[in-house]
Simulated assay, not measured.
Amino acid sequence: MRRRRTVTDLEPGTLVAGVDEAGRGPLAGPVVVAAVILDPARPIRGLDDSKYLSEQRRNVLEPRIRERALAFAVIEIGVAEIDRLNIFQATMQGMSRALAALAVVPQLALIDGNRLPKQLACPGRAVVGGDASEPAISAASILAKVARDRLMTALDAVHPGYGFAQHKGYPTPEHLASLARLGPCEHHRRSFAPVRALLEPELF
């Protein structure tokens, strides 16, 4: 059975921003981070962790979130910054920037996972599994996932042959095979081992 949603122990009326990312694991493309402040007066049914939702369902919910939320922001952290900082630090930077970009200042940020960025625009709380238990984090998860999937589909047209529209940059067997055949493109993460291995000079 699916887990029930939990209710965060907050005072009524507290402005809460949910924060989540999409794209930490892929070998190519940016990591995308979203922050969302939901409007209690305009509830959205069916919010859940984006991984549990079909693409069709995510595409239905995404415009509803954008329309009904009090505020939202979607931030991309590109490949160059990922390679310079590492994927964890790049994600933390994205979370800080997404919160700072909100048009409404939240009183609390609920961030999916077990770590908080060092610099936040407001107090924060890490919520393990929050993308499935906190509606605001679920909404952020959906915005980030839909935005990143669209971006990777667009990259597929620019860099045909890698299958970005199908696997979205994740290390599937098909992606690894095309990477070995074609070599990395400019959107591959040089700091990730499968890509780095193709760029290292032969030792023997």
Rank of each mutant, 00 (worst) to 15 (best):
H188A: 11
V16Q: 02
V33H: 03
A147S: 14
V105W: 02
D20V: 04
C122R: 03
M92V: 01
D49Y: 00
G78P: 01
S54K: 03
P201A: 10
S133W: 07
C122W: 06
P171A: 15
L176V: 05
A90I: 02
A157S: 04
P160E: 00
A71I: 07
Q166N: 03
C122M: 06
G124Q: 15
R24F: 13
C185P: 07
L102G: 02
D149Y: 10
D39V: 02
A101P: 11
H159L: 07
G130Q: 09
L110M: 15
R24W: 08
V79K: 04
P40M: 06
L15W: 09
R196F: 12
L15K: 14
K51M: 12
G13F: 12
I82R: 03
S138I: 04
A98Q: 08
F192S: 08
P43T: 10
K145I: 09
P12N: 12
E186G: 04
Q89N: 03
D149T: 02
A121P: 13
L120V: 10
I44Y: 00
K168Q: 10
Y170S: 05
G18C: 12
F88H: 05
A28R: 05
E200W: 04
I137G: 06
P106N: 04
H188R: 10
E174M: 09
L182D: 02
G23W: 08
P194C: 07
A180H: 14
P117E: 10
D48A: 12
L27T: 12
D112N: 13
F204A: 12
L15C: 04
P173R: 00
F192T: 09
A69T: 08
A103I: 00
A121I: 03
F88S: 00
L108R: 15
V79S: 08
I87Y: 03
A98F: 05
K51R: 09
R84I: 04
A132Y: 11
T91E: 07
V127P: 10
R42T: 04
L27F: 04
D149S: 04
T14N: 12
R148D: 05
F164V: 06
P135A: 09
V127H: 13
V146F: 13
E62I: 05
P40K: 05
G25E: 15
L99W: 13
Q166T: 02
Q166G: 00
R115D: 12
E202P: 02
